[in-house]
Design a protein around this nucleic acid. Structure first.
Lengths: 248, 248
DNA sequence: TGCTGTAACCTGTATATACAACTTGGTGGA
DNA sequence: TCCACCAAGTTGTATATACAGGTTACAGCA
């Protein structure tokens, strides 16, 4: 039952990973040098070296001789034409996922939304607005509308615990999806939510999903262009070729 | 132009990887201990430790405190119902692929072969017999028949450089494949080629491939049951579920 | 002003040493 | 015979030290 003390170098690694996951250390930001860790953490330089070296091979940081150690810049990658749960996608990369709910309200469908969901103007729908974070860095603003009578308990959900995508999949199988991908300049609100630099474009995915023959949800997903990409997967019938690994 | 000397620990790693890839060190066999490397390679124990430690995380060896370091046992895994080039599959795992050509001759189709390829008894076909090695360990005996008029220059190919699968794919797209998987006891010749223990079963894949509406090749692939498995991939329409990671 | 050299700091590698914990085989006593 | 104990060998971790080589900023000189 006694928890044996974890090795010192492992503690250092976990401490740094935590600071990255919490967003305290942002991509490209400087990580304490070996000598700084020697002083602040009371370890030998070789122990600090091992911790940082392993974090390098694990992809958390990058090291440049003569300059220092920096949080690795990651570029998220998703699969074109596959319905993805962003939380799964992020954890599959070994990163931490967190989401923030900005809006979770009932509305009446208007204009574009009503048209996309094939419902009458004024029909009851739920509006969700979330920001998804990968290792503390925002990677997606999810702006989603859901047919109210498809998911009546939508307002009672805690979407920091389960993503809307996972929640909706749990209600009924999502049989068909249509998505459009485009690049666009974000408005000020989106740019702020994604902590994007001025002039940086968004990758926008617009997705409509059908269940039991009904369009049930319509989502606009904004991703920061510098940190996200989609890759395509093409399988000719009977062969095993694919177009993975698209160039950036 | 001057090649700077590689680090000592890197030289050690490459030396050990080479001995594994050459088949000089077989799976589960003992690798020199740190202290033995200190003596034989004239390095400090910490350097030997780093080399062996990194080989562990890279999957080449396994270490057991108090016992020693051993070449990792690998169990090859292929995808069910996907036409695979075994050389690609092996190199994708980071292992080295080598193949040995045991037979490359012209024959006349008889019985089962003629029937499988939908040709008349006595039609000209080529017969290929190869053994594929992963890190020096045999993992597949490929017994293949190819329609002669589909691949007229088949006898001129060097199949140690390009696998029959890759060569045939290069001639024409393989549009359709049918495969049957079964477990069977190998005959003496197969057992010897695969260096299998007595009583160990084979996983046998029997594959027929069509191109341009014609069955062009028929292959029997024998794998040692203890070192090879297939995993299945199932994707319901419109969703993203899969049955990867089948239990052994 | 512009350039050069240098000091300070950084990572990368290598060694010697030390102790802890685990495994195995053998020795010796009950 | 059986069991307890110990010695030897192994990996795992931690430290102190040393030197090589890259980068940056700044002082000082032309």
């Amino acid at each position: 039952m006694n928890a044996v003390a974890k090795p010192r170098y492992q503690q250092l690694k976990e401490m740094i990973i935590r600071r990255i996951s919490d967003g305290e250390l942002l991509p490209l930001e400087r990580v304490p040098s070996e000598n700084e860790l020697v002083e602040s953490m009371q370890v030998s330089r070789m122990t600090a070296n091992r911790a940082l070296r392993e974090l390098t091979t694990e992809g958390y940081v990058e090291r440049i001789a003569g300059r220092g150690t920096f949080v690795a810049d990651f570029r998220a990658r998703s699969h074109l034409l596959e319905v993805q749960n962003i939380a799964d996608e992020i954890t599959r990369r070994g990163h931490s996922h967190r989401s923030e709910v900005l809006r979770q309200s009932q509305q009446h469908a208007r204009g574009e939304i009503a048209k996309a969901l094939h419902v009458e103007q004024g029909s009851r729908i739920f509006h969700l607005l979330l920001v998804h974070y990968e290792n503390g860095v925002p990677v997606q603003v999810e702006d989603r509308h859901v047919l109210a009578d498809f998911a009546p308990d939508c307002l009672a959900q805690d979407f920091t615990q389960i993503t809307p995508s996972a929640y909706l999949t749990g209600i009924a199988p999502l049989a068909e999806a249509e998505q459009v991908v485009r690049a666009a300049q974000p408005n000020r609100a989106i740019r702020k939510r994604l902590q994007m630099a001025a002039g940086e474009p968004c990758l926008v995915v617009i997705r409509r999903t059908w269940s039991h023959g009904r369009a049930v949800t319509f989502a606009r997903l904004h991703h920061p262009g510098s940190r996200y990409e989609l890759s395509g997967h093409y399988t000719p019938p009977g062969t095993n070729k694919s177009t993975e690994e698209l160039p950036l």
